[in-house]
Design a protein around this nucleic acid. Structure first.
Length: 410
DNA sequence: TGTCCACTGGAAGGGAGGGCTT
DNA sequence: AAGCCCTCCCTTCCAGTGGACA
């Protein structure tokens, strides 16, 4: 019997994280420090639901990492405590970042209210009208209040307009027994302005704004979580204040602060270090930034990758401004070499805008006078990430072609 | 002062691909 | 099998535009 490769002595790692779960951003803590006002506010508004009365619709606004989602889910949990059998009200949560089309949202809602397999709505195939009517039927059967949370609600608007909101907010006029109430959650301060007037007033009956956490509050939040997640003496004193300071600088985002703490702990653990130090935090900060961008790039559709590759090529070959037209001509050549179909100019212009929104590039519209008006495109990623893009196996054929040398336009 | 460039930004529509219904 | 429906990706069309240049 030989030695197993899983020899215990090989694992010199010291366990620093007692309860990893608590540091995840999906974790709903029992207490949400510094959000008491917001919680009270919302509870006041939706309390009538416990006696089957329809609460006002609410729009929750606040920057990312200000605890909106956590608060909403916390309230959902508490609501269930107050009404365990869901006799008077049910809480439905939909994340519109994941499902961002009308059918998907209605499908998602229906899944949470229909428990009988046979009556389920299929995930595609039906007309919206039929889905809508079926949902109403099911709502009405239950005779209670449904509180529907639409998290990241602005995502729907971007792609689909506001028809779906009209659907939802006018449902009460058709419902006989039940009532529904919408809680919209958004980090887009201009969301309201983008809605048509008839929907604006319905959706925003009540507004609750979540201000960013200040450094002291952030520190407090981190400290409470850290106490639960780590054993005693595992963390240097300066770590929490440091994480808080960094995150406060980057706009008071508690999620980022928590990530920072978790990744720092991970790094320390993996290193076999016996405690978490500020050095780990610095390390973690760099890694988070890098990982986030790389993840985005990895998951880019092929055509977008080719566009990005074209932009990089342009920057390597040109001293002057890189504009949409430049990108397009290189894009076409790359497509030819790789044997991919070439999309039209308009589509590429749109893909460039998307890369801009993802933060991978900066593309701003600029007029070059007689030379027209178009986008001036800058890269917004560092050398390491550029290399990462170039090494994508998708672009392997380019190596043989000495791309650029033969390009007429460059 | 007007012209004109190289697009932008918005809208509308096609068609492939998912799947339901009859 | 034929007919619907919804979504996604893409094309086509077009009016609009900031500013260098004549």
């Amino acid at each position: 019997m030989g030695e197993s490769i899983f020899d215990p002595s090989r694992n010199k790692r010291k366990v620093l994280i007692k309860n990893r779960n608590i540091l995840q951003t999906t974790y709903i803590p029992d207490q949400l420090p510094h959000r008491e006002n917001e919680i009270n506010n919302i509870v006041d508004i939706i309390t009538p639901s416990l006696s089957k009365n329809k609460p006002s619709n609410i729009l929750i606004m606040g920057k990312t990492g200000t605890g909106k989602t956590a608060v909403v889910n916390y309230i959902g949990k508490e609501l269930k405590k107050a009404d365990p059998e869901e006799e008077n009200c049910s809480f439905i949560y939909v994340n519109c970042e994941i499902v961002d089309n009308p059918y998907g949202i209605l499908f998602n809602i229906s899944n949470q209210i229909i428990n009988n397999q046979d009556n389920k709505i299929p995930f595609t195939g039906w007309s919206l009208d039929r889905v809508y009517e079926t949902i109403i039927e099911h709502f009405d059967k239950k005779n209670k209040v449904f509180i529907i949370v639409l998290d990241e609600i602005d995502r729907i608007l971007q792609k689909n307009g506001d028809e779906i909101f009209y659907f939802l907010t006018t449902m009460n006029e058709v419902l006989k027994e039940s009532r529904i109430s919408i809680i919209g959650v958004t980090n887009n301060a201009k969301f309201m302005d983008l809605l048509s007037p008839r929907i604006k007033s319905r959706l925003g009956e009540e507004k609750v704004v979540f201000p960013p956490y200040n450094p002291v509050q952030l520190q407090d939040i981190l400290k409470k979580r850290a106490e639960l997640a780590f054993g005693p003496g595992v963390m240097d004193e300066g770590v929490v204040p440091y994480c808080a300071a960094i995150s406060a600088q980057d706009s008071g985002d508690a999620r980022k602060a928590l990530d920072l703490l978790r990744i720092s702990a991970d790094i320390a653990e993996r290193n076999g270090d016996s405690s978490i130090t500020e050095a780990h935090v610095i390390f973690a900060r760099n890694r988070i930034e890098l990982d986030a961008v790389i993840e985005v790039i990895k998951t880019l559709p092929v055509q977008s990758k080719i566009v990005l590759r074209s932009i990089i090529k342009n920057h390597e070959e040109k001293d002057s401004s890189v504009i949409t037209g430049d990108v397009y001509s290189v894009y076409k050549e790359i497509c030819n070499i790789l044997n991919y179909s070439t999309l039209k100019e308009k589509r590429i212009a749109d893909l460039i805008s998307e890369l801009d929104m993802l933060g991978i590039i900066h593309a701003r519209v600029k007029s070059f006078g007689r030379n027209g008006r178009t986008r001036e495109i800058e890269l917004n990623i560092n050398k390491d990430i550029i290399d990462f893009v170039k090494k994508d196996e998708l672009f392997e054929p380019l190596l043989k072609y000495k791309l650029g040398k033969q390009m007429k336009l460059l």
